[in-house]
Amino acid sequence: MSQASAAAAIATPEAAPRRLRSSFLLPVLSGIGGLLLWELAVHAFALPSYLLPAPSEVMVVMVEKWRLLLDQLQYTALAAVVGFVIALVISIVLGALIAASPAVERVIYVWLVVFHAIPKVVVAPLLLVWIGFGLQSSIIFVVVFTFFPMLVNTVTGLRSADPELLLVTRSMGGTTWQTLRAIRLPSAMPSIIAGIKISITLAPLGAVIGEFVASNKGLGHMLIQSVGSLEVPTAFAAVVVVSILGILTWYLAEWLERVAIPWHASQRGRAAE
């Protein structure tokens, strides 16, 4: 450890606010600076708002249409949450079956790989034909979008237990089920959580894409529609809201990680921060 970093590691009363300042202030300043540049550029080049609206314009739309945006957000978030939970259950159950039985793996895996290889966005319009218009289409699209990373990570996780650790419960007369609970599942948690972290941010994306093709509600539908009628500031407002949803889900995943696997090397000491 260098002298400088050794000194930084010692938390003096003054060091804490300084760290806070650099970890919050710089990103905030950078964000504001970027928005200002964007605003200035739009005015300097006199860009029409159907090409690129100024941030101030988007802000005005967001304030004016907050009620509508909130409604669409609720609809999209509902599809994302329901779809994600369904995908989570499917991937854990299927993952456990695959990890437990090589026969199940051989039968199912080939289908999963084929399924994963199909470009889902391209197939999306088919959903409209098969499932029809509405929430269920978005939900199914979220499931399709999010379950694969969680499934793969569940299988990997359940297989990753240290074989010597398995001897511990066996030497104590533990049953297969007890070994699963005491060793295999906890060993699998970091990998399962990593899968959740990938999938959870895909969930709003899946919902929005589902709404592009098969919905007359939601942020995705709003986006498509406002682009179609050249209300670009409204489209931007929808994009902002989708992004906020994405950011929220990311922090939700981070929080989940901290609560579920506080013992993992990646989390140690974080609770104290």
Binding site: D162, E164, L165, V168, S171, A182, P186, M189
Partner: peptide
């Protein structure tokens, strides 16, 4: 499956969780 045996391995094999 027999109980009444205690085993200590070369690695401590404690459960981190």
């Amino acid at each position: 499956g027999t109980t009444g045996i205690g085993v200590v391995f070369q690695r401590d094999l404690l459960l981190d969780w």
